[in-house]
């Protein structure tokens, strides 16, 4: 099955990003293809490489980056939402990209499921 994920909240402030990640991992483990994680609203701040949490905590941006590189999951931040929040190509972690809402529409159309995580 092909699955798209829509993530609508930023890292750390809400559990949404953590649940989305755990869900993506489990879906891949069950043999599904996670096509893309589309970041919207404050969700776009999931992929800034400027994030620098304490050593003993998870680095959420790095985790998305790794998921992308290991499993070919596209990590896409909405351009309009990114611009509002100071997210640009300069700060993106490897494996992520900025794109338009048209891409989300394509993701919604081409996948069997679109699962949303937010708050």
């Amino acid at each position: 099955m092909n699955i798209g994920i829509l993530l609508k909240e930023g890292p750390y402030n809400h559990q949404a990003s953590d649940t989305a990640f755990k869900f993506a991992e489990a879906a891949i483990k069950r043999g599904h293809r996670v096509d893309a994680v589309f970041l919207y609203n404050d969700g776009v701040t999931n992929v800034t490489k400027l994030m620098d949490p304490p050593q003993d905590d998870r680095n959420i941006a790095a985790r998305w980056s790794e998921l992308s590189q290991k499993h070919g999951v596209e990590i896409l931040a909405c351009i309009a939402a990114s611009k509002r929040r100071g997210i640009s190509d300069d700060v993106l972690v490897e494996g992520s990209a900025i794109t338009g809402l048209g891409t989300l529409t394509d993701i919604a159309i081409r996948n069997d499921r679109l699962v949303t995580f937010g708050d």
Binding site: Y40, N41, A81, G100, L101, G102, L104, T105, A108, I109
Partner: peptide, 15 residues
């Protein structure tokens, strides 16, 4: 507001 922005873009895709 951002929901409305999303709706306006999706509207162009004839779904």
């Amino acid at each position: 507001y951002e929901g409305l922005e999303m709706i306006l873009i999706m509207a162009a895709y004839e779904q």
